[in-house]
Design a protein around this nucleic acid. Structure first.
Lengths: 345, 345
DNA sequence: TTGTACGCGTTATCAA
DNA sequence: TTGATAACGCGTACAA
């Protein structure tokens, strides 16, 4: 007996090697499905592994191979319907490919986001997927990763300037256009817009879509009905109250998320306006709540599962596990959107 | 634009040692805040680290120290409001303590749950936090972790039999009781119950609370109004339709989640019943949707943030980072619940 | 207070 | 097809 046994429950490939009368290298080959292993040997090793209930130490493996089989994910918050569905899809797909997911919530804090990039770098994740905060306009903290050869995929909230990262985003321009032109088609002429802060590409694009639809219909944009703010329930209430209490009221509201749309609906009820008769409302994201209000809210579906799937596809290309769709890496991937017509507009 | 060359190899403490004219051991001591380091030396090292932009390799550190500073989390799905809030709290707290979180979704599949335990074991996580699937009645797959000295905390859906793991659960018996007795107080006598499958402790307990309230009020339980099923929207619709179309209709429904309560509300509207006048409804969990239906739904608040906090507290004790509340480790921790009265009952 | 030397468990590189 | 052996980067006795 050599220096083998130390503590129960800490079997290593060395133990397996001894027990099966083979070398550690062969055990490793079996574990990694290396081609040059005789079938009989493989079987013998597998049996021993089973018998000893050996489990490979991924930490040691990672140190040697420089692969952690872990993907880092940075997201503002997981509780948003859209985000949690994207993440769910990513996680399920990645798991099938043998990767783990390390999820970090920035809580929409740029400082947290910066720290998390460092942490994920130290953890030696194989790649990072990130939806940035509303305030992230400088993306240079991600250079740390890319300079070390760690691929970065941005989705949803992405940089607008040039980058070496892979970009996957929703068709927000079209989303803004669809929401607005729908209202125009059903006769609205005085359309308000509750936008998010324009520091973020999402809201820039949705605004562009809004403007395009308005211009095409020769409708003028009333600055008193344009709001650029963090899209919270309270902020929306304040904005909508102000509009509804004025002499000149809009006949429709395009909101950049469903929380704001729900707030608008609530305000309308309080003021005694009937939706959609007196005021029409369109939201954004198809939040699970938007389907169950009375009236239910017309909104923009973003297909989070599809986006998650695209993200994993790109990831597999970046990790060299796939060569399909390698053009994803140079051109931004645009995920389609769709108007979900309900009763509010 | 030329692609950035992949770095030949990141800096190591050896490089830092060379550059600062010290030994690797001293660098390591500085990184780990070891007491026996002269302040001037520490400063010198920190400067060099900064200048070289050295970042510690957590994989190597983990191999040596046998600590990954990563906590594994297994959860049926992150998209449920309750779960996503628990997870958010856990993640934010853990991050402050210097731990990462590896989240695994079992999708309520027992087989996935089993695999994920193995994966987390291989990844050498420092501890595992788990909310099990609805079908997990045998928890022995977690023994792999506990036998290797990896602490396990079960929350929400926990084992009912004896275990070495730490248990943190909601007061579901009281929740079921509060929901039912509230209905009784406001005059209901014919109360239906849409329960989850009794394989799961949650629904056993809520049912016990329901029965207790019914017995105290000398109300008899009508078996035609008792349903034990996975708590999906469709299942609830079928159950409620059946009851509302029969000759003998309940005057109230206790649902074990808000999805079922929302389905009940929808069915009632379809059949032309007014809620709460003709039918009263109480849900469970205070899902974000329950507040915005018309009428809004009375439900049971489970304080997910508090539960998340308790989980981290217990974890810190288990990891030897804290000695407060060490009784958490032997007795299950019960997180309180509260009736949120809204307009549906 | 700092340095030397070794080992954590695995995989890669040779050699056989 | 398999084996021997040297890394991977860090932490920690032990020595100085």
């Amino acid at each position: 007996m050599t220096k083998l046994p130390k503590m129960a429950g800490a079997n290593t490939i060395l133990h397996v090697a001894k027990a099966s009368g083979l070398s550690p290298a062969t055990i490793s080959r079996v574990l990694n499905n290396h081609p040059y292993v005789k079938e009989a040997t493989r079987k013998r090793v597998m049996d021993t592994i089973e018998k000893m209930s050996y489990h490979r130490n991924n930490i040691a493996s990672g140190l040697r191979s420089n692969k952690s089989h872990t993907i880092g994910l940075i997201v503002p918050r997981i509780s948003m319907t859209f985000q949690s569905e994207v993440i769910t899809t990513i996680q399920n797909h990645l798991y099938k490919h043998g990767y783990n997911l390390m999820i970090c919530q920035s809580n929409d804090s740029l400082q947290m986001e910066r720290e998390m990039v460092k942490t994920l770098h130290s953890t030696r994740v194989d790649a990072v997927i990130a939806a940035c905060t509303l305030n992230t306009t400088d993306f240079s903290h991600f250079d740390l990763l890319m300079n070390s050869g760690v691929p970065v995929i941005f989705y949803d909230r992405v940089p607008t300037s040039k980058t070496n990262a892979t970009l996957i985003k929703g068709d927000d321009t079209r989303g803004g256009y669809l929401a607005t032109s729908h209202l125009i088609e059903i006769g609205c002429k005085k359309i308000a817009h509750i936008s998010g802060p324009l520091s973020c590409n999402l809201y820039q694009d949705r605004l562009a879509g809004f403007k395009k639809a308005m211009q095409q219909a020769n409708l003028k944009i009333n600055d008193n009905w344009m709001f650029y703010q963090e899209l919270t329930f309270e902020n929306a209430r304040i904005a909508v109250k102000k509009m509804l209490n004025s002499n000149d009221r809009p006949d429709a509201i395009v909101a950049d998320n469903d929380t704001s749309a729900i707030a608008a609906l609530e305000c309308a009820k309080e003021v005694g306006l009937k939706v959609p008769h007196d005021l029409k409302i369109v939201g954004y994201s198809n939040d699970s709540r938007s389907a169950i209000t009375s009236p239910s809210i017309t909104t923009i579906e973003q297909f989070p599962a599809l986006m998650g799937q695209k993200i994993v596809e790109a990831l597999m290309v970046l990790l060299g596990k796939s060569t399909a769709n390698s053009e994803m890496l140079v051109e931004p991937t645009i995920v389609p959107v769709q108007l979900i017509r309900r009763l509010s507009a």
